[in-house]
Design a protein around this nucleic acid. Structure first.
Lengths: 214, 214
DNA sequence: CGATGGCTTGAAATCTCTCAAAGAAAGTGG
DNA sequence: CCACTTTCTTTGAGAGATTTCAAGCCATCG
């Protein structure tokens, strides 16, 4: 595995690429995004350490999305040949990788639902809940607080909002005591309430030990 | 494989189920959907003959979505045990199935983008383009026309609109000569223009022979 | 210290929803 | 085969959520 440090706001791979390797995110945040013909950006998922944002390129030749760093990241590149060897030698690994991509798909499904059917505060709360639970699962949450280097305009691209609207939604959430968010630090004063506002049910994340979601 | 005929508007599997088999759609249309805590429905994809809407349940124990028939359907059920046997015996099959689920994921990504960043006519045009191309790939399109038993309220649930709005969008599209749609019959007078309005690029469908998309 | 990127604000314009009702179309039972 | 019911489509008008445009503020960084 070839490890590399990439600074913030850089594309790791681009839509249309035909990569011969995939990347394992070791530290930092990345996002998977698409650009519409009209020039608008939609982030379709956030990646946290442990994720392999472009594992699908192992079986789909052409990338239909880009992956970019949100913060500075450490990334490990593994060639598809090596991955295939691994899969051939240990069928268990095939299943595990396959399962990872299925969970990615489950997250996309949930995002379609979130963007299509929830509004304002509720939509934002839902993504925050997802991030919290996933970060907790990899040990990046202490005391209902975590580092979150995501800008308001990145949230906008993830939620299908404008930056202006994200700003107003966040203000409302702060006013209601749903979140504390300053700089890159997010704190959740009342997890149960945030979950309720975001209509958040972590089933779709298919976590092995469900306690992380509690 | 156990074949069964299921009438329209029936759930085949439900969110929360732990199925021990998956279903292959032989004829008819189904959809994958989720219900939010607020009681709203979001369809996250349409299925056409040849699809296996719940193949993911092979590796994810609990279903995080439901699958329902849209029209009357013929469905073939295959047990997970049989599927696993197949995969073990023929690694090629594993790859093929895995690839199918990766394409599903690619479609979800596109839908997030569609719902998040396109509006009105453009959003509707995009789903129609996707349906056309996929139906063409399985031989269900002749002369830029196909059967499409999807109601306006189902389109609404797929696009994140209300039924009323879908109705108005469709009227506008008819008025602009983008589509002809009466009853269950859809005709596309000008494919290039519809593609352009829907900002449709079929790359994400990862079709083997790209001509289908032309 | 100026520059850059990110955050905040206001007001008007749009898109989409809600509510409510009526007109087609399709299926059901007698 | 008709009357009846149900579902699907269509319409109007007012309300709401979100966008657009435009500007000012704040922090960070070289």
């Amino acid at each position: 595995m070839q490890v590399q440090v990439i600074k913030a706001d850089q594309d790791i791979v681009r839509e249309g690429d035909r990569p011969s390797r995939s990347c394992l995110l070791l530290s930092g945040f990345t996002c998977v995004y698409k650009i519409t013909a009209g020039g608008k950006r939609q982030i379709v998922s956030f990646n946290i350490p442990g994720d392999i944002p472009d594992l699908q390129s192992l079986h789909l030749k052409v990338l239909d999305n880009s992956v970019a760093t949100i913060s500075q990241c450490r990334v490990g590149f593994i060639t598809h040949d090596d991955l295939r060897d691994l899969c051939n030698r240990y069928p268990r690994i095939t299943s595990a990788f396959w399962r990872e991509t299925l969970i990615d798909a489950a997250i996309f499904r949930e995002w379609v639902t979130n963007v299509g059917r929830r509004e304002g505060v509720s939509r934002m709360a839902h993504v925050l809940c997802e991030l919290l639970v996933r970060l907790k699962a990899v040990g990046l949450v202490e005391d209902h607080a975590c580092d979150l280097p995501i800008t308001q305009s990145e949230f906008a691209d993830a939620l299908g909002f404008t930056t202006v609207h994200v700003n107003r939604v966040l203000q409302q959430m702060r006013a209601e005591g749903l979140i504390e968010l300053k700089g890159e630090r997010l704190t959740i004063p009342d997890w149960e309430r945030l979950k309720q506002v975001g209509e958040f049910d972590p089933t779709y994340l298919h976590l092995e030990n469900d306690q992380a979601a509690a």
